[in-house]
Amino acid sequence: MSAPTPTMAVRMMRAPRLKRAASWYTVSLGVLVVMTLAAVFAPFIAPYDPNFVNLSAVYQGPSPAHWLGTDSLGRDTLSRMIFGARTALLGPLLVVVFSTILGILLGLLAGWRGGWIDSVLGRLFDVIFAFPSLLIAIMAVALFGKGLVAPVIAMSIAYAPFVARLTRQLIVSERSRPYVAAYRVQGFSGPWIALRRVLPNVTPIVGAQSTLNFGYVLAELAGLSFLGLGVQAPTADWGAMINEAQAGLTGGYFLPAIVPAVAVVIVVVAVNIIGEELSDRIGGGVPA
């Protein structure tokens, strides 16, 4: 409404800001870049064929030959982890991209047009919200069979309403701001204002939130493979690796399960730190 009072200004300075957050951010970006490069150039980096079975070398500990040991079939865990990064990263990337595009379009439509379109879309989102994304993915498998294609499409649809609702809320609050009225008074057309001015003000915030979705999607898709419903053996995938290694746990063979588990955790932490830092930098709303 009006300029911040001095007390408000002081209060804003009190807002918690993680010190050294920026350096965590840099480290996280580094981790993601390394993981992505490893995934893309897996055939050149991995020391072994990830599916090369060597029954004379099962459950080996770390050694110069196998840095991270071998699994129950004597396959090199490091190589499988590097190849596993491909499905682990590609799936969430596709889901985040699809759901963001779909969500922004629907959110813009609902928020800018309002009226019955808004009501119908709102009701539709409510219904989709009732289906947790993992459940939709499991249903997709039940319908179309195992693999990643159906779950990725299903989860794109499951996540789109989250993006759409945030976009809609931001668009609605932007639309009521005087700067939009000012554009109208100057004679600009509604679509021009929506697409060229309001949407660019809103997308950074939506983008930062979508980044945070990446971690959840990665965990859920890996979980699906862990359940044996996603990526199928023998393809290397972090979730599937943990699934296969589970049998060895009771025998005390932790490494084949721990390695992909740590990989999952590291990537999710990195993505979440990046997402939170981005949200922080952009702030909770459009800067006034």
Partner: peptide, 22 residues
């Protein structure tokens, strides 16, 4: 933030490894 990055299946195998097996 760290805890939030531990999916339930990872949590499960770590808990099994430490508290059940070890």
């Amino acid at each position: 933030t760290m805890l939030g990055a531990i999916p339930s299946f990872v949590g499960a195998i770590v808990l099994i490894a430490i508290f059940a097996v070890q």
